[in-house]
Design a binder for these strands. Structure first.
Ligand SMILES: [Mn+2]
Ligand SMILES: [Mn+2]
Ligand SMILES: [Mn+2]
Ligand SMILES: [Mn+2]
Lengths: 219, 219
DNA sequence: AAATATTTTTAGGCTTGCCTAAAAATTGTA
DNA sequence: TACAATTTTTAGGCAAGCCTAAAAATATTT
């Protein structure tokens, strides 16, 4: 139906919209897609012709409902495939994204549905991101950053704000596993570092750089 | 590494070579790929430049070892994905090919290897076709056509010569399942039809059109 | 408000993979 | 062997997606 490239543009615009920005400008799309502004203008015109987004010269773009559907469906496929790679094929959470970038463009509604069933209808991908439903509903998580959480509450490590492989590999190194329950025991204003305790009297320390990229849920 | 289109050309040339033809001519490639001879000539030149095949004007083409590797690896991925779709996602054997045509172009050696392991190292796909090994070895099956088999031997239905969905759906309708053991009880020269018996005194009849497209192994 | 800097669009061009129409080579036939 | 039919290649062109360089519009300073 839509090309690999078109889906990537729509997904990028969708993600930029989710990050608060009302109208998306040419340069930010170019930056994410590692391409040039002139190329973005070309593609924007084509997507506008196909009613996938609204475009007014020099004013940026916004997805139409039709465009949002395509984008969310691509995100849905991406995250389901990440679950498959992680849960079934035992890839590390730092390895799944690149392969899912390819798999998300496989075009078969039946495949997506059967994959979802095979995976037992997962609600979140290996990075804690929510999986949109078949009808495009995406439950927004009430996660907060670990660096913003209060002491003396039971927190569940539930996601990451930084999806880069280097960050995820660092989390592997310091043995961070999503789903782990923690309580903040100490917050250091000086360097922003945080000490937490886990079940079984174990403790961990997070630098500010790490704490600001871990998402937790208050239990 | 190689484009979707390049892989499809190489796979097509490989399959035509397997069907006995020593040197592959332009028109037969065009027919399989549903494209025009002029387009094939264009692509052939590019593939020859990349040393994936040997080409002499007006003399047809033959894959180089390098080209054969790419083709066989694509076939390997195709058949592994068919196993996944059939065994794990419970697709019918008439549904898997189209989706595997897309999945075979996913580019990740690690993915292919992990998929193979997840599937428990299958040797044959749902249609009875052998799965090439990682190093490109493909065991050629000693299957014969049911219409050529002799009576009073135990035969195992092991594959199909016709891969079209209509044929496979017809086999579903008459309850043909690969792996079933049969013995020919009657061969009718008049219309080429064949009667067989199964375990438990059940019997089946195959028209010539069906019998000439079922592959059996002599037990 | 004018000048300057930044962003966006336009113009023109490239590659890949496809097409049609015409030319060239090969194959089949009289 | 000469003519006809078929196959293959060449020539020229198109759409998708990308590029650089230049022009136009918008935003920011002074
Ligand atoms: Mn991802
Ligand atoms: Mn993810
Ligand atoms: Mn197939
Ligand atoms: Mn098959």
């Amino acid at each position: 139906m839509y090309s690999y490239t078109e889906e990537n543009y729509l997904k990028t615009i969708y993600k930029l919209s989710e990050q608060g920005n009302e109208s998306i400008n040419t340069n930010s799309i170019a930056e994410v897609l590692q391409t040039k502004a002139a190329s973005v203008t070309d593609m924007i015109k084509k997507l506008a012709d196909k009613k996938l987004l609204n475009y007014e010269k020099y004013k940026g773009v916004a997805l139409t409902e039709k465009g949002r559907k395509v984008a969310v469906d691509t995100v849905r496929k991406h995250r389901l495939w990440e679950c498959f790679l992680y849960d079934k094929l035992k890839f590390g959470w730092d390895e799944v994204h690149e392969i899912a970038e390819q798999l998300e463009h496989i075009n078969s509604e039946l495949l997506t549905d059967k994959l979802e069933e095979f995976l037992d209808f997962p609600t979140h991908d290996p990075h804690g991101d929510p999986i949109p439903t078949k009808n495009g509903v995406i439950k927004k998580s009430n996660f907060i950053l670990l660096c913003d959480a209060k002491p003396n509450q039971t927190l569940v490590m539930s996601g990451v704000a930084d999806h880069t492989a280097v960050f995820l590999q660092h989390l592997n190194k310091i043995s961070v596993v999503l789903g782990t329950e923690i309580q903040i025991t100490e917050k250091n204003d000086y360097d922003g570092s945080i000490a937490v305790k886990l079940s079984g009297n174990k403790s961990m320390y997070f630098s500010k750089d790490v704490a600001k990229n871990i998402l937790v849920k208050v239990k």
